[in-house]
Design a protein around this nucleic acid. Structure first.
Length: 239
DNA sequence: GCGACAG
DNA sequence: ATCTTGTCGC
């Protein structure tokens, strides 16, 4: 009755130096010169997210495929794994990616765009979660974060669609994008095979009535429910 | 050296 | 991320 698995490659990094080396190697495979999926065209947008039970070192990943035009849910998948790395700002991907990949593998549809929680290019080493996931899957990917991380920005205009550069010094690493009038912006950055303009347009197309895109809302909701199903009914300490 | 710091 | 009740508002 226990289909829990670790999903860890044998060479998965266990310390920061090894993780940095992986980032440095994979960063060279990021593709930045593709515009990415055109907004308004048929597209399977897949939201991915994870939830943790730190007590048991359990992580649950969810991947939810939506029709980007209707926002209809096409398919859902989850996977359960062990936490693969401690939380270190800048190394988030090493915590989440093994289990996220397992969830994506369980999807029958082919994603046209991955929408991740967190960042892609907007990263101290220019290789955040969305970049990492994009390179490993070969799929177009973007990052949508709720916080500006270590970066600065001027407040965008007040209306939905208004945006301002997300800056690392003078370099634009992403965009603060207002998805709802009068509400705090989200922070969008490029992952793999998508331009920043396309990333922002897709985020707006995937957002209806809430600050966050429906892809991330659906994935967040699913992984929380799956985590509760996985651990909620089991007393702590029970193996 | 100390704090800040996506999720 | 996660710990957590009620409450104000459309």
């Amino acid at each position: 009755m226990n289909d829990k698995s670790d999903h860890l490659p044998p060479d998965w990094p266990t310390d920061e130096a090894a993780a940095h080396a992986v980032q440095d190697e994979l960063r060279g495979r990021v593709i930045l010169d593709e515009p990415g999926p055109a907004p308004g065209a048929p597209l399977v947008a897949v939201g991915v997210d994870v939830a943790y039970d730190d007590e048991r070192d359990v992580v649950v990943a969810a991947a939810v495929a939506l029709d980007a035009r209707t926002l209809e849910v096409l398919e859902e998948a989850t996977a359960v794994g062990r936490v693969a790395f401690p939380y270190v700002p800048g190394l988030l991907a090493f915590r989440e990616i093994p289990t996220v990949l397992a969830a994506l593998d369980r999807l029958a549809v082919t994603p046209g765009l991955l929408v991740c929680d967190g960042y892609g290019l907007a990263h101290p080493r220019r290789f955040g979660l969305a970049s990492h996931l994009g390179v490993l899957t070969g799929l177009p990917s973007i990052g949508v974060a709720k916080n500006p991380f270590v970066f600065r920005y001027q407040d965008p205009g007040p209306r939905r669609g208004d945006s301002a550069p997300l800056l690392d010094g003078a370099e634009e690493v992403g965009r603060a994008l207002r998805t709802r009038t009068g509400v705090k912006p989200v922070f969008v950055s490029v992952g793999h095979r998508v331009s920043l303009d396309t990333a922002c347009a897709q985020v707006l197309a995937l957002t209806r009535g809430y600050r966050l895109p429906e892809t991330t809302r659906a994935a967040d909701s699913l992984c929380r429910r799956a985590l509760a199903a996985e651990t909620g009914s089991v007393p702590p300490g029970a193996e």
